[in-house]
Design a protein around this nucleic acid. Structure first.
Length: 511
RNA sequence: GCCGGAGUAGCUCAGUUGGUCAGAGCAGCGGAAUCAUAAUCCGCGUGUCGGGGGUUCAAGUCCCUCCUCCGGCACCA
């Protein structure tokens, strides 16, 4: 069985889950479910990033220890993912002992390979904010951009990773693997970024300033820079590194039987640089293979305005779920956003997409099952499939291309299109006319059997995006599980006792 | 400033390597049908494919230029 390892970023535990987190995570979940359905052994990883200054500060503000805050927030994320039907195989937290040990092992490895050196970091520090700001942030007036207070040029000891050493190799890798970073526009941006000389990466902070982090194995007066800590989670969860083993046997050379490298890292475009520059060069420095693909998706905007807390226009996926159901939210997000691009959320578009589920797919199921019940006593006729074969094949092909090629919107459009075609098939066959005429009995049998078969195919196609509804539909077809793709050809529908049930996607009054 | 995208029917957008590429969905108008969640199905679009120029037998599809909008330009988790 082939395997597939995919990741979301681990989310920073200082804030609540929002639509951005939900989109990435649902995207990952849909891909994971598709891959499982296609017969692959999937490892789907998500989690929380729990170290660093902001956690330290947020915890202090709320009168908690950092770990107490992280426990609380990790719980929020896990609950949100539960609510949204996320099927992650592992929820990693960077405060886990295993992760902390792997980070230490990775750092040690980098150092042993000669890629770490000690130097002074010089930057603009705000005493008021207790942090550094970049040149861009402080502007020409050199004031801290949050409170407007003064900043001062100070120096501190840091350890640096020789990222510059890997610049050429990284450029070559991107050029030789055009689909490594998708979409292509993001790849271009990274190449543009790499056209400039790459500086080395400061990978530590003095513990006197930031105590909430992973100490460097060779200098516990310094803690690991949070991004290095965070990115390493992908390797931790892969099981590639055994930090408890002697140095030479930790797995950097042979990876043992592990899930590394990841097949795809998913993320928002805001953290593309860390994933496509920092992370690959760190891996190169540790002699670990690079992930096979990096996908940076776009942002949801509201109307034509960016979604932001300060504007008060943030869309809460859990609110939508309460009203329309998890499947509707997942469907909207996957169907409406061209994977990789930005998309605009509007209530009207959401309703349109919901109507699609309700009117095209839900109604197809309901009318088909009703006819089986009314005309054949609820038992699917044992008749050969007749019609829709070409439509089904074409839909499955387009669907697979879409889901494997990271054009989920196109894949699901193909699935919905099959349901559309099946509705047309009903109109063309007019089962209600056939039912009135004894001569029409055979054709009616074939028509109903074909429609039920098509519903089984649709259940399989929709399971990744609307898992609960797909399961419900399968149960009504008297199947004990949602069929895998490999099972569809041999699937027998004749003789099954179907259940009509209430509508899968009930009409919702727009108000 | 430098680099890179985008500009296709009222709306949201598809359009691989140039030759049924002028399309889909939604909205709108007209019609059919009644199995179904008044859901469905069929029919209807004369759009300068942002403007201009060029290459080619042939260009939304390549090149140049102009206009408009957007994104990236590092240690911010």
């Amino acid at each position: 069985m082939s395997s597939f390892y995919l990741t979301t970023p681990i989310y920073y535990a200082s804030g609540e889950p929002h639509l951005g987190h939900a989109y990435t995570t649902i995207l990952a979940d849909v891909i994971a479910r598709y891959r499982r359905r296609a017969g692959q052994d999937v490892l789907f990883l998500t989690g929380t990033d729990e170290h660093g200054q902001k956690i330290q500060e947020a915890a202090a503000e709320q009168g908690m220890s950092p770990l107490e805050l992280c426990d609380l927030m990790a719980g929020r994320f896990e609950a949100a993912w539960e609510d949204l039907g996320i099927s992650n195989d592992r929820f990693i937290r960077t405060t886990e002992a295993e992760h902390r040990a792997v980070v230490a092992a990775l750092l040690e490895r980098l150092k042993d390979n000669g890629h770490i050196y000690e130097a002074e970091y010089a930057g603009w520090y705000s005493v008021g904010q207790e942090r550094y700001f970049t040149e861009k942030e402080i502007g020409p007036d050199r004031v801290d951009p949050i409170a407007g207070g003064p900043v001062q040029r100070i120096r501190e000891k840091n350890y640096f990773f020789r990222m510059s050493h890997f610049q050429e190799r990284l450029i070559r890798h991107i050029e030789e693997n055009p689909d490594w970073i998708v979409p292509a526009t993001r790849r271009n941006e990274v190449l543009g970024f790499l056209a400039q000389p790459l500086a080395d990466l400061s990978i530590s902070r003095p513990r006197s300033r930031i105590h909430w982090g992973i100490p460097l194995p060779w200098d516990d007066a310094q803690v690991c820079y949070v991004w290095v800590d965070a990115l390493t989670n992908y390797v931790t969860a892969s099981g590639a590194i055994d930090p408890d083993a002697p140095k030479e046997e930790r797995g950097f050379g042979d990876l043992r039987p592990s899930r590394w490298p990841a097949d795809v890292h998913l993320m928002g475009k805001d953290i593309l640089t860390t994933h496509s520059v920092y992370w690959p060069t760190l891996l190169m420095g540790a002699n670990l293979p690079l992930p096979r693909k990096i996908l940076a998706h776009g942002w949801w905007v509201v109307g034509d305005t960016k979604m932001s807390k300060s504007l008060g226009n943030v869309v809460d996926p859990l609110d939508l779920r309460d009203r329309f159901g998890t499947g509707a939210v997942r469907w909207y997000l996957m169907r409406e956003m061209a994977t990789g691009q930005d998309a605009s959320y509007t209530p009207g578009r959401f309703l349109t997409r919901y109507d699609e589920l309700s009117n095209i797919l839900g109604n197809l199921a309901h009318r088909t099952l009703s006819m089986v019940k009314r005309y054949r006593g609820g038992v699917v006729p044992d008749a050969p499939a007749d019609g829709l074969a070409a439509d089904t094949e074409a839909a499955l092909t387009a669907y697979r291309d879409g889901l494997e090629g990271y054009r989920l919107h196109a894949g699901f459009a193909a699935a919905m299109n099959l349901a559309r075609g099946a509705n047309g098939f009903v109109e063309a066959r007019e089962p209600w006319v056939l039912a009135r005429d004894p001569e029409g009995a055979d054709e009616l049998d074939r028509t109903l059997a074909t429609l039920v078969r098509t519903l089984a195919v649709l259940a399989a196609m929709f399971e990744p995006v609307t898992p609960t509804k797909a399961r419900k539909l399968s149960m009504r077809l008297d199947l004990d599980h949602v069929p895998l793709f490999a099972e569809l050809d041999a699937l027998e529908v004749g003789g099954r006792s179907v259940t009509v049930g209430s509508p899968l996607f009930p009409r919702v009054d727009p108000d």
